[in-house]
Amino acid sequence: MPQVMDKEVKQGVQQDEPIVKYENICKSFGDLEVLKGIDLDIMPGEKVALIGPSGSGKTTIIRMLMTLEEPTSGNIIVNGKNLWKMNKNDHLVRANDKHLRQIRGDIGMVFQHFNLFPHMTILENCTTALIHVKKMEKKEAEERSMKMLEKVGLGDKFDAYPSQLSGGQKQRVAMARALVMRPQVMLFDEVTSALDPELVGEVLEVIRDIAKDGEMAMILVTHEMDFAQEIADRVVFLDNGVIAEEGTPEEVLEKSNNERLQSFLHRFRNGNGV
């Protein structure tokens, strides 16, 4: 059963309202039921790690928040506003593009396969949304982006194209691109899974750095158990489309008696050695 965490104790002073609230979310792809009633609250600034076997629906959870998938039923509330439904003549109807755009501006995402824009330089990758979506002056956008690129250790690459970078560097650019938009919630979708093992460290280092800044809520779908343990305030274990276990990293990764979780962790630690 999902347990309620006492965030006041864990994070110091916190707002009471969750920034993201999943209410009984179900999602099916055709006949396949991927999520079977997910209830999950994310507090402002909270770092949540989603773990679970592949096919357990963890990526789908964050993709629905980024509006890349539509839930089959249930509500996702962001900052008190219903993401996938809107009011029209006192009726809740399916959200249109405009409604989705208004809400998803507070959310950012980093993808497994980076999805950088290959026809733009590294700097342009970062500035393009600032200029065209946030309507920021080009000069200001470039200053902000350069600062962010330096923060992720790629200030000298601003002129390069994505194809000239290593996987780890691409992923760091992707993070800079998402971060300059200053989202309140940042989603990480298995961001190290597509990387060569020796490049994973540099990417985790940047995430660690971002997490330290604190204000931004983060939801990480990850297979890096040690990393999840290190930076997450809360770990959520998904199995068969439901939340099978959740709690502090210690509670979930070390003290849980959940058999499915045990076997998952066991397989994981033996198989991957991560």
Binding site: M66, T67, L68, D97, R101, R104, G105, I107, G108, M109, F111, H113, F114, N115, L116, F117, T128, A129, H132, V133, R177, A178, M181
Partner: peptide, 19 residues
Amino acid sequence: GQWEASRALNFTRWQTWRK
């Protein structure tokens, strides 16, 4: 992935096509 990244950066449909 290019469509999804555009969505994540909150581009409009038109901007996604054009940029």
